Amino acid sequence: MTHLDTLTDTRAAGATSSLDIRELHAMDDLEAVCVLFGEIWGTHPAKGPVSAEVMRALGHAGNYVVGAYENGRLVGASVAFFAEPSAATLHSHITGATAGRGIGLALKLHQKQWALRRGITRITWTYDPLIRRNAHFNLTKLGARPEEYLRSFYGAMDDAINGGDESDRVLTAWGLSAHHGPAATSTPDDSAAAHAVHAVRDVGGRPEVTPTDAEFVLIDLPDDIEALRRTDPGAAHAWRLAVRDALGGLLDDGARVLGLHDRRGYLVHRTPVSAPARPRTESSL
């Protein structure tokens, strides 16, 4: 068991001192995780994102399977496994937590320390690029960065969060440091944002797409894509396609996401294309 008051990073997350994070192995504990995930994703525990049997196997093989307990009650859990390159990377498959009390951040910081103790220097995970609060958490609070756009990665997902939408994801990488101080926020350079051009702009709750070859590009996100999927599925799908084309196309071309600008959209730096070298000529008299 790891108590939060022994982890400086986690204490900085603002979680309560009564929160305990520990590795899980017993089937009863893992089945409780399935129930929690079912509540978070709005599914039956037996049809949740990962089964107790799979978690049992992953934990037994030395991977990361933990639960977060507040006053003895399970309030969060996270599952991760080693990925290529296996000596340096941990892939965080799923993290779910009761909202609003810093539990998700506490889990990520615990995962960071667990990885560093094993010589892991990079953690990856996927998230839905349309969910603004997740983008803020991943890019601004943790300083992770999207590396690859994955179109309909899990197919259509009909749960309370995904609402039947295509499951586009971005593969995000978090470079780890052995620094044990409070986690610093990571925001993009204001000068880059001042020169950016919108490829996708929020206009009245719908995406307005403008093709651009600007070096710095802004891609707005909807205020609440999960609510929009319930109230206006057509608008939600328009956002999916707009961000897929803009962000996906840029990442495919090697562009780099600098961060989340003004908590509203991605600021992306397109690598300038070098002018072709002029051919050398030879002359003779």
Rank of each mutant, 00 (worst) to 15 (best):
T231Q: 09
V197S: 12
D220P: 08
A192Q: 07
W239N: 03
H195S: 14
R229D: 10
I219D: 01
D220S: 14
L221V: 03
A199S: 13
A183G: 10
P188Y: 09
S191K: 04
A199H: 10
A227W: 03
A194W: 04
W239P: 07
H198V: 00
V217S: 04
G181K: 02
V203L: 14
E226T: 13
E208R: 13
R240H: 13
E208L: 15
A193F: 14
T212D: 11
V243K: 01
R230I: 09
T210A: 15
L241W: 00
P182Q: 08
G234T: 13
V243C: 04
A199G: 14
A236K: 00
A196G: 04
R201L: 14
D189G: 06
D245V: 10
R201G: 01
R206F: 11
H237R: 15
E208V: 00
A184Q: 12
P207D: 04
A184V: 08
H179C: 05
V217F: 01
D213A: 15
D190K: 05
P211I: 10
L176A: 09
A184G: 01
D245C: 07
L241K: 07
D232W: 10
T210M: 09
A193W: 09
D245E: 15
A242S: 12
P211S: 14
D224V: 06
R230T: 11
E215D: 08
S177N: 05
G205C: 12
T210P: 06
P207L: 04
V203P: 07
V243N: 03
T212C: 09
S186W: 00
D223H: 14
A227E: 15
H195E: 15
E226H: 08
V203Q: 12
A194N: 06
V217M: 05
A238Y: 01
T187K: 13
A238W: 00
E215M: 10
A227H: 13
D189M: 06
V217Q: 02
T185H: 05
D202Q: 09
A184M: 04
D245S: 13
V217E: 01
L228G: 00
T187P: 02
R244Y: 06
P211M: 06
D190V: 09
V200W: 05
D245I: 01
S191V: 11
G234D: 15
R240L: 10
P182D: 09
S177W: 02
I225V: 15
L241F: 12
D213G: 11
R244M: 11
A184F: 10
A235E: 06
D202G: 02
V217K: 02
F216P: 06
A194T: 10
G204N: 15
A238L: 11
T231P: 02
T210V: 14
A194V: 12
R230Y: 00
A238P: 08
V203Y: 01
D213V: 06
L176S: 05
E215A: 13
P207E: 03
E226I: 07
A238C: 00
H195N: 11
P207N: 08
A227L: 15
T231C: 10
H198L: 03
G204C: 09
H237I: 03
F216V: 06
A242L: 00
G234N: 13
S191H: 07
H198Y: 14
P188H: 02
E208N: 03
D232R: 12
T210Q: 14
D189V: 09
A236T: 07
V200A: 01
A194H: 05
A199P: 04
H237V: 09
G181S: 03
D232I: 08
D224I: 11
L221E: 03
V197M: 12
A183S: 02
R230P: 07
P211F: 10
G234V: 13
